[in-house]
Computed example of a mutant assay.
Amino acid sequence: MSKITRQGTNQILSSSVEYHNFVFLAGMTADDLSKDVKGQTAEVLAKIDAALEANGTDKTRLLSAQIWLKDIRDRGAMNELWTAWLPAGMAPARACVEANMADPRHLVEIMVTACR
Rank of each mutant, 00 (worst) to 15 (best):
34 S>T: 15
35 K>Q: 15
36 D>N: 15
38 K>H: 04
38 K>L: 13
38 K>F: 02
39 G>I: 09
40 Q>T: 09
41 T>S: 15
42 A>E: 15
43 E>S: 07
44 V>Q: 05
44 V>Y: 08
44 V>T: 02
45 L>E: 11
45 L>M: 12
46 A>L: 07
47 K>V: 01
49 D>Q: 11
50 A>D: 05
50 A>I: 01
51 A>Q: 12
52 L>Y: 05
52 L>P: 01
53 E>A: 15
53 E>H: 08
54 A>R: 12
55 N>Y: 06
55 N>M: 05
55 N>S: 08
55 N>H: 10
56 G>R: 09
56 G>S: 06
58 D>C: 06
59 K>P: 00
61 R>I: 00
61 R>V: 00
61 R>Y: 02
62 L>W: 06
65 A>T: 02
66 Q>F: 01
66 Q>L: 03
66 Q>P: 00
67 I>T: 14
67 I>G: 03
68 W>T: 00
68 W>Y: 12
69 L>E: 02
69 L>D: 01
69 L>I: 03
70 K>H: 13
70 K>I: 00
70 K>F: 03
71 D>T: 00
72 I>P: 04
74 D>C: 02
75 R>Q: 12
75 R>W: 00
75 R>Y: 05
77 A>P: 05
77 A>R: 14
78 M>F: 15
78 M>W: 15
78 M>T: 11
78 M>S: 06
79 N>F: 13
79 N>C: 07
79 N>K: 14
80 E>Y: 06
80 E>D: 15
81 L>K: 08
81 L>V: 01
81 L>Q: 13
82 W>L: 13
